[in-house]
Computed example of a mutant assay.
Amino acid sequence: MTGERGRDHGGGVPIRPAATVILLRDGDSGVEVFLQHRVASMDFAGGMTVFPGGGVDQRDSESSVAWQGPEPVEWGAELDCDASLARALVCAAVRETFEESGVLLAGHADGTVVTDTGPYAAARQALVTRELSLAAFLAETGLVLRADLLRPWSHWLTPEGESRRYDTRFFLAALPEGQLADGATSEAAGSGWQRPADALDDARDGRTMMLPPTWSNLADLVDVPSVADALAARRRVERVTPRLVRDDEGIRLVIDGQEWS
C-alpha cells in the first residue's frame, strides 16, 4: 500500500499526506471549477492557481467523526491505503474545503445536505486556527460528514528535490445546492469559478501559474459535459510521481517519461 503518514522516500524530506478537492458546478457554458490564487509569499506553491486543499492534520483520523457514505475501508481500496489513512484523507478533504472556500460537505440527521453555512462561520475560523477539530465541530453541530459527496480523481506525489513533499489525493465534489464558495482565506489573493479550458488558457498565456497536478486535473475535465458526468466517471487512480532532472540545461520536470513545460 502507498500513503503511509510521515514516510520518507529518499532525499531526507518527509512526505506528508494531503487532500485536495476540485469543486464543480454547471455553468451557462459548461462545467466550471473553483480556483484560488495563492498568496505569492506562501512557502509552498506561492502565487500558483490551485484547488482548495492541504495537509492531513493528526486529528483528521479521529474515529469519532460522524460519517455517512462509503466506509473508510472502502475508501482505502479506492485510494490504495489503509482504512485509517483513508479516513484521515476524506476528513482532511472536507475540513480543508470548508476552511478555504466555505463549502461544507456535510449533512443533517434527516439525510439532507447543508445548504446554509452561515451559522458555522465561527466554527470555520476555529478549524483554521486548530482550536476545533473536525470531529468536535460535527459533534457540536449535530452534523455528519458526507463522504458520499466525494469522488476519487487523481493521486500525485511531489518529486524528490523539493523542500516540501506531499502525497496528495485529489477528489471531485459538486457545489452543494444553496452553498457559495468564497475566497475568505488568508492563503488566497483571489478566487473564482472558471471553465477548465479558460483556466488553462490563462496559464498558457502567462496570466496565471499552475503546478503540473492542477494543469493535468483541469485538462481531464475540459471535455466533460456536466458535473453529473464528471461524478459518474470511473477512473483508475494511479499515483503520478514527477521527476526533477538536473543537467547542463538546468532543471527540468519529467512526468511519465515526458518533459513537462
Rank of each mutant, 00 (worst) to 15 (best):
T2I: 15
G6T: 11
G11E: 01
V13C: 03
P14L: 07
A19T: 02
T20G: 07
I22G: 08
L24V: 11
L24C: 06
V31Q: 12
F34K: 09
Q36P: 03
H37L: 10
F44K: 14
V50N: 06
V50G: 06
V50F: 11
V50R: 10
V50D: 06
D60N: 08
D60R: 04
E62I: 09
S63T: 15
E74K: 05
L79N: 00
D82N: 10
A83K: 05
A83Y: 10
A86F: 01
V103E: 04
V103W: 00
L105S: 04
G107N: 04
H108M: 11
D110V: 05
G111N: 02
G111Y: 06
V113P: 10
V113E: 10
T117R: 02
T117I: 06
P119N: 05
A122C: 12
Q125G: 12
V128W: 05
V128P: 08
T129M: 03
E131R: 14
A135M: 05
A139K: 13
A139N: 11
T141A: 10
L143W: 03
L143Y: 05
L143Q: 10
L145K: 07
L145D: 10
L145V: 02
L150I: 01
R151P: 12
H155N: 11
E162R: 08
R165I: 05
Y166E: 11
D167A: 02
T168Y: 06
L172H: 11
A173F: 08
A173G: 04
Q179T: 00
A184Y: 14
T185V: 12
G190A: 14
W193N: 08
P196Y: 11
D198C: 09
D201E: 13
D201K: 13
D202C: 10
R204M: 06
R207C: 07
M210H: 01
T214L: 10
V222T: 00
V224F: 00
V224C: 00
V227S: 01
D229R: 10
D229W: 09
R234M: 11
R235Q: 07
E238R: 12
V240A: 06
T241M: 08
P242Q: 06
R246L: 05
D248Y: 15
D248E: 13
E249L: 14
I251D: 12
R252W: 08
D256G: 09
G257P: 02
Q258S: 11
S261A: 12
